[in-house]
Simulated scan of single mutants.
Amino acid sequence: MFRSFSRQVVHLGDAGAGQTAKLFNNALLMMNQAAIAETVDLATRLELDPVPLVEVLKLGSAASAALSLLNTMVRPDNVDHLSAAEALDMQLFDQAMRQAGIDSTPATERGLAGVHGLTQLVHRLSA
């Protein structure tokens, strides 16, 4: 059944393990967004045009889903909605970690930095 709607099927464990993996995936995406926003900020401060820089980064070893989604799926017209959904995802991630007795504060804060910087990043790259 799973192969009918997914190219990859990986058994991760008991019921709920897939949902937990999805939380980790989303948290990592948001942490990557934070790194991209910081990189773009530094480049801008060096007076580099961030738009072609991001395009070059997409082609090199720094390529990631977080980069490839910028101005394709994540655009000025939907970034506010996506940021709100991401903030909820980070809250769910933090809640799941705390319920497991794990302090995920550094990862949660880094992910939230990516969430909060996404709107400015997308608008900076579409200007």
Rank of each mutant, 00 (worst) to 15 (best):
M1N: 09
M1F: 13
F2H: 12
S4Q: 14
F5Q: 10
F5C: 10
V10I: 15
H11W: 13
H11K: 14
H11N: 14
L12F: 08
L12H: 07
D14T: 09
G18V: 02
Q19K: 07
A21V: 01
L23N: 06
L23Y: 04
F24K: 00
N25P: 01
M30K: 01
N32G: 08
Q33L: 15
A37L: 02
T39F: 03
V40T: 06
D41K: 15
L42R: 12
A43E: 08
L46G: 04
E47A: 13
L48H: 05
P50Q: 04
V51E: 10
V51Y: 08
L53C: 04
E55A: 15
E55R: 15
L57E: 08
S64C: 11
A65M: 11
A66I: 05
L67F: 12
L67I: 02
L69H: 13
L70A: 05
L70F: 10
T72I: 04
V74N: 09
V79P: 03
V79W: 11
V79Q: 05
H81S: 11
L82E: 03
L82V: 02
A84N: 07
A84G: 08
A85P: 00
A85D: 06
E86M: 13
M90Q: 14
L92N: 07
F93Q: 06
F93D: 07
D94R: 10
R98L: 12
Q99N: 15
A100S: 15
A100P: 05
G101Q: 08
S104W: 02
T105S: 15
P106F: 09
E109M: 11
G111I: 01
L112W: 09
L112D: 03
A113L: 08
G114P: 07
G117I: 08
L118D: 03
T119I: 09
Q120E: 15
Q120H: 14
V122N: 07
H123A: 00
L125I: 06
A127M: 05
